[in-house]
């Protein structure tokens, strides 16, 4: 394996792990449901994307073939993350989940 690929894999792995962790920290410490929604939908998706990318580089530099399943999983995650965030937000709005006091604007009540 070339030196460059090795560095790239390490960098991507650590970035991915850090983003996953930051997303979880956001989930644990942000004040209300709507703000918590931001952590997982982004940070975690980016984190898993980076880890996937490192796996693609690792296996392609080892075997010389590009793994399609990793790319499929990543594309699927990137397509489904906004949908699940949206439907969860709708459910929360329907249930009238409380928002933190300094929120400006209001959710609708339909």
């Amino acid at each position: 394996m070339s030196q460059f690929a090795e560095y790239a894999i390490c960098l991507l792995l650590l970035t991915g792990g850090a983003f996953t962790l930051i997303g979880a920290i956001g989930l644990a410490r942000l004040p209300d449901f709507y703000t918590r929604l931001h952590g997982p939908t982004k940070a975690t998706t980016v984190g898993v994307g980076a880890i996937m990318l490192s796996s693609v580089i690792y296996f392609s530099s080892r075997d010389g073939s590009i793994g399609i399943s990793e790319i499929l999983v990543t594309v699927f995650l990137f397509m489904t993350a906004p949908v699940s965030a949206n439907i969860l937000a709708k459910a929360a709005m329907h249930m009238g989940v409380r928002t933190v006091e300094n929120t400006q604007g209001k959710p609708w009540d339909q």
Binding site: G16, A24, L37, P40, T44, L88, M95
Partner: peptide
């Protein structure tokens, strides 16, 4: 609230995918 728990489960399965990779 219940949506918080569902969100936590959602994040948990994404983390499980990361661990599998």
């Amino acid at each position: 609230d219940a949506p918080d728990r569902v969100l936590a489960l959602d994040t948990l399965y994404i983390n499980a995918i990361a661990l599998i990779i």
